[in-house]
Computed example of a mutant assay.
Amino acid sequence: MADEVDVANNAQEVVLSAMIQRSSKKSPMFINHEQKCLNCGEPVETTAHKFCCHECEEDYRARKEAEIRRSGRRNA
């Protein structure tokens, strides 16, 4: 019985170790030092905010996606 418990504990240690390694490789958190909207330049609440409103976020993402699509066509 102890052998089964040891095997289960070892397996759990392997999984936890892999999860810790994966989580430590995350990209650093974005910090908006200027506290300005990335789309329109208006002030934002904190350095953690990228956009002043939902509309600016949608507009910014749509423009970036269009840029990616255009650049993909040129490379093909």
Rank of each mutant, 00 (worst) to 15 (best):
R74F: 10
N75C: 13
R63W: 11
D3K: 06
D6T: 06
P43S: 07
K36V: 14
K64T: 07
P28M: 08
G72R: 15
S24A: 14
N32D: 02
V15G: 00
C53T: 06
A8Y: 07
H49E: 12
A66P: 03
R63M: 08
T47K: 12
A76G: 14
E45P: 02
V15Q: 06
N32A: 03
K36M: 11
S17T: 05
A18C: 04
G41D: 02
E58V: 09
N32F: 00
I20Q: 09
P28A: 09
K26S: 13
V44F: 00
I31A: 05
E45F: 12
S23T: 04
R63E: 13
C56S: 01
K26Y: 03
R73V: 11
E58C: 09
N39Q: 15
T47R: 15
Q12N: 12
I68E: 12
R69K: 15
E13C: 08
A62F: 13
M29K: 15
A66C: 03
K50L: 04
S24W: 01
E67F: 05
M19R: 10
M19W: 06
G72Q: 12
T46K: 06
N32Y: 01
Q21G: 14
E57A: 07
L38T: 00
A18Y: 03
E55S: 10
N9H: 08
E55I: 09
A62P: 02
T46P: 01
E42W: 08
E34T: 12
A76W: 12
R61I: 13
S71D: 13
S23P: 00
N9A: 10
A62G: 03
K50I: 02
C56M: 02
F30N: 06
Q35K: 14
